[in-house]
Structure formats: C-alpha cells, structure tokens
Design a binder for these strands. Structure first.
Lengths: 141, 141
DNA sequence: GCTTGACCTCAAGTCGACTTGAAGTGGCAG
DNA sequence: CTGCCACTTCAAGTCGACTTGAGGTCAAGC
C-alpha cells in the first residue's frame, strides 16, 4: 500500500499535522481513508502541498487556492490570474526597492539628524502620501 | 494657538482618529493637552506620523518604533538597525523577483497542464523546500 | 439655557492562518 | 489481553494592528 499516514506526510512535507487537519477542514486537501482513526493520504498530496506553499508565497489566500484544484485534484489555474498576481508582486517589488534604497540612504547619511537630510525628508513625504503603503496584498507572513 | 485637534490631525495625515488614540495608548505619539475632553496635538505630530508610516512600510512593528523616538520626540534611529532592515528587504525582494518570474512563466507556459512543465516543477520543488517562505518579516498588510 | 454632535473611554470584535489543550480512541508491541 | 501513545475531535486561544459599539461628556451655536 502506498498510502501515507499523517505523520509521514508531515515529516516529508514539513507541514505540521495540525496544519494538515486544518487544510482538510478547509477543503484544500483530502485524505483517501483511515486506518482506525488515522488519516491516510495519497502520496500525490505532497505535490499538492508544494503547490499550496507556492500559492501562499505568491500571496494567494487559502480560500483562493481552494478553488484552484479540480475535483480530481489536478491544479486548475487560470493564467490570467497568475499574470495579475505577477503584476501585483511587481508593484510590491518596486515599493520595496524604493524602501530599501531609502533605508540604505538613511543608514549612510551623515546629517546630524535624519530630519535635516533632504533626501530623508523627501522619503518621509512620500510615506505620508501613502506611496509605500500597499493596498492590501500580504506576500509576507 | 497652533495646536491641532484630533479631527484636524486625522484630516491632514489621513490617519483615522481611532488609530491616533490607539497610537497614543501604545506610547507612539502624545497629545499636548485637551480642550474639554478633546485631545490637542502639536503640529509636529504630522512628521511623526509620517515617520511611523515609513517605519511600518519598512516592516518595523509599532512596538519597535515606540523606541525610536527620544522623550523629546526627535527620531533616534540606529543606523545599523536601518541597514539590517534594508538587508531584510533586499532578501524579500529577491524572493519576490523569483516568485514573479515563476508566475510569469507559468502564465505564459503552453504545457497542457502546469504539472507537465519542467520549469514549473522546478519552482514547485523550490517552494516545497521553503525557498519562498519568509522567516517572519511582514512588509505587507 | 439647552441641544447638538463630535469627541471621549473601555471592552470587545475582526481578520487569516494556524496552534493549543482537554478529553477520547484504537492499532500494535509485549 | 493490556497498556502505550500517536493519533483523533472540537472548542478556544494567539498574534498585530486596528475597528466597532455602547454609553458618557462637554464646547459651541442658537
């Protein structure tokens, strides 16, 4: 039998058992049966978990990803959705590059106080205008 | 009198009054008095709020930023801290660039299923290895 | 002087993705 | 056959940054 029990899936995927149960409850994954109480999973679950990890990293919510599989378990991903997400990330990258450069400047700047540095004040103004505040993604944690 | 009441600060800064009260409670900002019940703020609060917005965008928590002001209200920012944060952001950027490129590929790839695309599988493996999962920043949101 | 309504306080709720804890179950080694 | 213990369920807790709601106050305009 090729079925994996939950501990084995956890070990191989690095995803905690509690998270696997949570994903199942959410409909993101499905077990193929039980041995006693214990869930058994098809080894293909590992690919699926990798895909979920990828989607999460790309900024998709668990709910969004629940719709990205066919009932048979094959990924069904709209290419336009991917392109849109890529564009989102691209905007985030631009924002972060500006932030990083601003921070590096502030770290290197020799003005006695940051408030006396024109560059820093310019960055501050941009921040006040919300230039760095994202609309509502959440690539990170 | 140059003091601004909370509604005026909210209007000029774009920060909701509820947030201003919350920031005060957290010790991030301070009012200079009251008119009746109403808080009055020094106009310098606007710079401070901009700095807080900048810090948040850079990934500092509110608690971290509470320590970045002198009792007099001047920013007191350790340059090494800034450099460290810049490096953090730089790592995030690299991660995001990889993600973005991966997504663009997946969006453009003509393989019948994503799972049949070698490039996609490579990305998937990287995701499974946690290559895209951040340690615990939180630039976004 | 009285009403109005923007402000006040304080506790509780929200959001997403999980984790934790208490109480129960059952396969398997001895 | 028994005991162990890794699993099970289900409810509740966590984290950060706020928001919301109920009930209260008071400066200002009429």
């Amino acid at each position: 039998m090729t079925a994996l029990d939950i501990a084995e899936v956890a070990r191989r995927s690095g995803v905690p058992a509690s998270t696997l149960r949570y994903y199942e409850e959410k409909g993101l994954i499905a077990s193929i049966g039980r041995r006693g109480l214990r869930r058994l999973f098809d080894p293909a679950i590992l690919d699926r978990l990798a895909l979920i990890a990828l989607g999460r990293a790309a900024g998709f919510s668990l709910d969004e990803m629940a719709g990205m599989f066919t009932p048979e378990g094959a990924p069904r991903i709209d290419r336009a959705t991917l392109a849109t997400k890529a564009d989102d990330i691209d905007r985030t990258i631009r924002r972060l590059v500006a932030m990083r450069d601003g921070l590096r400047h502030a770290a290197a700047c020799r003005a006695p106080s940051h408030m006396e540095c024109p560059t820093f004040r310019k960055i501050l103004k941009a921040a006040a205008d919300g230039a760095f505040t994202p609309p509502a993604n959440r690539i990170n944690r």
